[in-house]
Design a protein around this nucleic acid. Structure first.
Lengths: 200, 200
DNA sequence: TGTACATCAGTGAACGCGCGTTCACTGATGTAC
DNA sequence: TGTACATCAGTGAACGCGCGTTCACTGATGTAC
């Protein structure tokens, strides 16, 4: 690290980079396997390390889960935002872009890259207070994102947020098959038919 | 057991009664603690037994989870149906009765007595094929129950079912506190304002 | 510039504990005669 | 009706394994002089 970057605090240390890599790995893993599907040794191995070094980075497994959930929330939100942006550039309304991006078949089959709330919702009440606090913030962020896309004459953002999360979860519960995809499509079309207004 | 009841097959054996008690206990436990929150020894103890006898009743822990989910689904559904019935007798429309019963504060804080789908949704994709199969059936049953309560001019039952499940999950994710209850109330009122029609 | 020392990130063996599963045994209930 | 035996539900100790956590150590990087 050069003297300049050290002074300016711009270059993360080797340890910070490793820490970051562990968190990123865990952020994917919790969305794929749930909070219980994430083991310390697994995560370290997947991050290219041995499990012994874990406690130089985190006070406990729970501390990792908390950081991982925060990261998963940010990462999922920015991924959805990116897909919304693509659809907006193709001329979709803000609302249609959001609904199409969130309730896409891609989202259905790739929980580890998408919305953390949808991937973990029913496990949240059983987590530690720290994790629950981070989760509550992700829920607020999700509602805020929905609010940002709503036309004026559409019901409140919380209602649509519940609709989006519920549709994804029930579809996934049915499975990544014809039946699950049908539910996803049905709910997406119903939402758009009800609330999407052509731009004036 | 008398010869008569034995022939008529009306009285369950002592073993069947015990089996039933274990399943009932587990059906509550999975909704309270999730699939991972349920241990063989815990369940047996809660059912008043020792863990050694477990494998005389079930081939594996997974077999118990499957039976428990089926039971939890039936039990939750009948509990909701009962609360719907109470509200109907007080003059509520079928739709209002369903929404009020499902999105009640009581339901928010008592997952172990209520809808299994809402309590477990995001864990379902990570379970064994047998459990997932049982879960898919519970989702279909939930949608059917909603369909049964819908007035003619309301959007499709799957959409409302997603809404109900999503609202409960996000509320629980926020916590059994003012914020969670506020989300529950908001979504309940929005649904009723949009879709409840006074009886003709 | 080179040498000696200190710091630090990561390694890998070991620990303790919980949990799913097995099994020999017990005490109660049912059956044959 | 009573006795001997068989069946069966449930007991409790033991097992093997995985997982979170600890710790003494190593090899690389940085620092003092």
């Amino acid at each position: 690290m050069s003297e300049y970057t050290a002074l300016m605090n711009t270059a993360p240390s080797r340890k910070q980079l490793t820490h970051d890599r562990i968190v990123t790995t865990a952020a994917k893993a919790i969305r794929r396997g749930g909070f219980h599907g994430v083991g310390v040794a697994d995560i370290m191995k997947e991050a290219g390390l041995t499990h012994g070094g874990f406690y130089a980075h985190f006070a406990s497994r729970n501390a990792l889960l908390t950081e991982a959930l925060e990261r998963a929330g940010q990462e999922g939100a920015s991924r959805v935002a990116k897909e919304v942006e693509t659809r907006r550039r193709q001329g979709a309304s803000a609302f249609r872009a959001l609904v199409d991006a969130y309730l896409s078949e891609r989202h259905l089959g790739a929980p580890e890259r998408m919305c953390a709330v949808a991937a973990l919702a029913s496990e949240i009440p059983r987590q530690s207070p720290e994790v629950r606090k981070a989760a509550a913030q992700r829920v607020r962020d999700l509602i805020a994102m929905v609010a940002h896309s709503l036309p004026a004459d559409v019901p409140s953002a919380p209602v649509i947020a519940c609709q989006l999360v519920g549709a994804l979860q029930l579809s996934r519960a049915l499975g990544d098959n014809a039946e699950g995809r049908a539910l996803l499509t049905t709910t997406r079309n119903a939402l758009l038919a009800q609330f999407d207004r052509p731009a004036p």
